[in-house]
Every structure is written in C-alpha cells, then in structure tokens.
Design a protein around this nucleic acid. Structure first.
Lengths: 140, 140
DNA sequence: CTATTTACCTACTGCGTCAATAGGTTAAAA
DNA sequence: TTTTAACCTATTGACGCAGTAGGTAAATAG
C-alpha cells in the first residue's frame, strides 16, 4: 500500500502542473483544493523542495512552483522519493544487507521481476500523462 | 512492501510442494528448513488451513500437506490471502467505502492500472512455476 | 519601518499494525 | 498411556504512519 505521503505528493504535483503559469501557488490554496491539512502538506513539500522537484518562495506573493517542465517529471521519481523505495521486499532495496538466503532464495526472482515491472510502470508515466488524459480546465 | 506473513506463506507453500509425496510434514521441519520460528508459522498455517489451501493432521505422523496439486495454486491467491489485498490504495479494495473524490480523482486510473497489472502478474504465476525453474532436489 | 503574508523549521504524539512470544488444550497414533 | 503434533487464546514490544503544535525567517505592500 502506498502511504499518504506518496499519494498526496502526486496530487500536489498535479495541482501545481494544472496551475502552471499562475506564478507561485501558496500552500493554503493547494490544501483547500485538495482537502488536505496544510500542516501535513508542509512536511511533504519540504521533501519535494529538498529534492529539487519544486521551488518555494517566501513572503507575500510567494508559494511553490514546479522547477521543471511538466513532461520532465516521472510518476516513479515522485513516488520513490516519498516512499523511500518501490521495492516489494527489503532484500531488493539499494542499501539492503544481503541476507544469508539470497544465494538460493527461491522467491527472489519473483520479487525481482515484480520490482522491475513496477519501476518500468511508474517511471514510464510522466506527470503530463496524468493531466493530458483529462479535459482541460478553463480559467475565465 | 509485502509483509512477512505473505512472504513466509509463499515459502511454506513452496516447501510443502518440494516435499510432496513425503506424507504429512510437521511444522517443526518447515520451521527448521526455513529458519523461521515455529510459533509464528502456526499463525500463518492457521490462515492457510482455514482457506483450504493446506490440510493439517494432528497426532503422531501428523503435519501439513497441500490439498491440491502444485500447479493448481497461484501465487496471487496465496499473497492476497495473507496480505488481505493486493490493492496499492485503499480506494480500490473490494469493501472500499467510496470517497467523495472518486468521481473525478485524477490519480485513480493510475492506481487502477497498476492494480490490474499486479493481479495479472501474481495470478499468472503458479506455485509450480516457482519450483520448476530450479534444479530438482534429490533425496538419497 | 512596520504589518502582513508566506515559507521554513523542530519537536511531539496518538494510534494502529507488524512480528512475534507465551502457555496452554485437543487430537491422533505407537 | 505416553508421545507427537496440530490447534487455540491472549499478550507484547517496537515501529512507522499520519497528523498537530508552535514557533522563526524571508519577502513584499503600504
């Protein structure tokens, strides 16, 4: 199960993408639109800023904006950033301490195959793919 | 991340499959071979028995055995039984109470597609597939 | 220069689930 | 009747998730 952090982060990124060109977006706006506590979103934003996915500006007229073009983000990198890993088992994590059974673990190839499939799936999806499939939002 | 329950259950089923024809397998044997506490395996076995995947026999000469042929189990049903669901988000669970955003949730199709892919993957793998790919084990 | 707006920072916490452990009772066979 | 093994109920420590609370720093408007 994906945690709220990963799911909310994705929704934040989509929200920012949908309001691109509107300058900096205050977090309160996103919180209102997405119906998520602003306080909690702060935690998620911190990670997104730290990783360079978005940039924040303080003060009046401040807020957040995407630091790249919408089609230059993959869903995979967003999820992996927030979840820590997309691996289905600990043995497959980057920093996994090799367990004694690794050599002839009969289930490892299964997990590996699923892991590869998962990464291909999420890294193959661009942020823009999620938005383009929807009807455009018009601002009057 | 899959929990130990799901992963251990799979290893138990593989162990039983590999020792098919040897009558009932006492849980202590499996615990020793898999290096997992017998006490903990009892919990998992209870679920497997309850679901009818294996059958247990008490008393001397007792133990557990598969209730079907090895190629009549899918990895998916074993994992889903132990994990409760394979859904990546709660909204997709069978008993999910529809949330207010379901109608125009922009991320739902993504989760749905991943969920479908996951189920196809694991239900497409038979227990026998995991074993046949390995060198046979010889008993002297 | 001051007030306002906004991001940024550190710390804390309730809650639930995971991963077991403990200690028994029933069933069946030698 | 003793041994073997499954079956059953209860308990527990640790950890992470999801969220709160309360403050400080930065930037702009007036």
């Amino acid at each position: 199960m994906f945690s709220t952090k990963g799911r909310y982060a994705l929704r934040i990124m989509i929200d920012l993408a949908q309001h691109e060109g509107a300058g900096n977006i205050p977090l309160q706006k996103i919180a209102d639109r997405q119906e998520i506590s602003k306080k909690y979103l702060e935690i998620i934003m911190k990670d997104l800023v730290k990783a360079g996915l978005v940039s924040g500006a303080s003060g009046r007229g401040g807020g957040y904006r995407l630091s790249r073009k919408v089609d230059e983000y993959t869903v995979g990198e967003i999820l992996e950033l927030m979840e820590g890993t997309l691996a289905p088992v600990a043995c497959l994590e980057d920093d996994a301490s090799t367990c004694s059974r690794t050599e002839d673990c009969i289930t490892l190839p299964l997990w590996k195959e699923y892991y590869d499939m998962t990464r291909e799936f999420f890294y193959g999806k661009k942020l823009s793919d999620l938005i383009e499939s929807r009807d455009p939002i018009y601002y009057i």
